[in-house]
Design a binder for these strands. Sequence first.
DNA 1: GAATTAAGTCAATATGACTGACATAAATTT
DNA 2: AAATTTATGTCAGTCATATTGACTTAATTC
Lengths: 153, 153
Amino acid sequence: MPYDLIELLFFAYRDFTGDPDDALAEFDFGRAHHRVLHFVERNPGIMVTDLLGILRITKQSLGRVLKQLVDAGIIEQREGSHDRRQRLLYTTERGHTLAVDLTRLQKKRLKRAQIGLPEGSDEIIRKFLLQMIDPEARGDILKLVRSSFDLRD
Amino acid sequence: MPYDLIELLFFAYRDFTGDPDDALAEFDFGRAHHRVLHFVERNPGIMVTDLLGILRITKQSLGRVLKQLVDAGIIEQREGSHDRRQRLLYTTERGHTLAVDLTRLQKKRLKRAQIGLPEGSDEIIRKFLLQMIDPEARGDILKLVRSSFDLRD
DNA sequence: GAATTAAGTCAATATGACTGACATAAATTT
DNA sequence: AAATTTATGTCAGTCATATTGACTTAATTC
């Protein structure tokens, strides 16, 4: 009975998100800001609509968070060159630095979690996590994470 | 660079919590109720103080959620036999059934996620998740999940 | 008897989400 | 060219989950 896996996931995820949460609290930002910053950093020039799709939140929910990030000079909006309705999202230099800092915290925890694991564990964990995701969503998500995935395949 | 692990964790956890979230929406309960129900089911007779420690929320936050669960006949409070200040928490029969149902959903997803993984993957995943947790907290959490862990060690 | 502990409550506040309605501008379709 | 669709943004109201701080009651411990 994998009862303990349920609980381990709960506690692992809590501490995993705790690192950036604590760091962002100084800026009066929260987890919502982190998520937006992360996916904009990873997908420079992303459309607002696509970001909404990734985060599965409404336009209104994104609105406030995005405005705060733009006002704080973390994220920048540029008119699309082909389609001038678009407000493509980019991190500013400051936003990039912040994103890198937050990612560093999470990478550190992930590396520490892999200490003492046998050869090939990385691939197992990746496959496990991917298969935890709803089958219909896996394709899109793989596209999203492909760039770094490819380096190992 | 384990950039994709960060994102896989995000999406995996979202879908993992999505199963019980959807199921509980019918009862007008949310994730907070699920967490309380889960840990009471797993630790029958737990003290309110200890539950607060596990969930790392305040008494006031727990208050409302717990009241709703008690009112709905999901959780039951009994006076401690040794210490009559205590209001020890138990699931009712109905609460037990609900907890089992929700756990079933999550076990199903976990089992599906382990399809095609090599022998010994279970142990690797468990160790990885445990090592994701803050070192200071691991002891307490291991105590919490011990019962099922022992079956395999 | 005094201090501490377990639990609960009142009040105010913050964050992150939601629904629904509507507005604007640009692109696409007919 | 007109009609429709799309991308984005905004106004208004609401909800769930969490917070801080202050205080109460009852029971246990020192």
